[in-house]
């Protein structure tokens, strides 16, 4: 892969992939390790990409798989305490911190779906393909996650 294309891919996708990994692991260090692994696969692989969108989709799929593998790993570091994880990041408003904390409190399956839906703006079908589950399962998880967030944050976060 050409160095310039790779550097562009890193610049455009590293943070995005970090957030996807974080939605799986809830662990800062594990998420960074996952992102590094994903980009190493991109660098060492011999894939032919048509455009940036193709690279983006490929990276997303690999990141999801790497995150799943990380959670299965015996050597995985312990999940950090949510409060200490929040200290690593800066939030402009209290409501931002509340939403982040609420999302991180969701069960993993719901958390990942809601992140892919709202942050990555993927369709239910795309999420189903990515996670290798049925579309109805994605819909159920999304509905359940919204209900829990509403329970924790009230109605305003949806309508804001």
């Amino acid at each position: 892969m050409e160095k310039q294309i790779f550097e562009n891919a890193v610049a455009r996708n590293s943070r995005r992939l970090f957030l996807i990994a974080l939605s799986f692991t809830k662990n800062h260090d594990d998420s960074e390790d996952i992102v590094q692994n994903v980009f190493m696969k991109l660098w060492n692989g011999k894939n032919d990409f048509e455009n940036d969108e193709h690279i983006k989709n490929w990276l997303t799929a690999v990141c999801v798989n790497e995150s799943k593998n990380c959670l299965k790993s015996y050597f995985r570091k312990n999940t950090t305490d949510l409060d200490s994880a929040c200290d690593l990041y800066s939030f402009d408003r209290q409501s931002d911190l509340d939403l982040f904390t609420a999302v991180m409190k969701l069960p993993k399956t719901d958390r990942v779906v809601i992140h892919l839906f709202y942050y990555e703006e993927l369709s239910i079908k795309q999420i189903a393909d990515l996670l290798d589950v049925k579309e109805t399962a994605v819909g159920t998880r999304l509905h359940r996650a919204r209900s829990k967030l509403k329970e924790m944050l009230g109605d305003e976060w949806i309508h804001e």
Binding site: S14, L19, F91, D96
Partner: peptide, 11 residues
């Protein structure tokens, strides 16, 4: 709203 909340979450 969601993206804004996560804008501070960075590697």
């Amino acid at each position: 709203r969601y993206k804004l909340a996560f804008s501070g979450v960075r590697p």
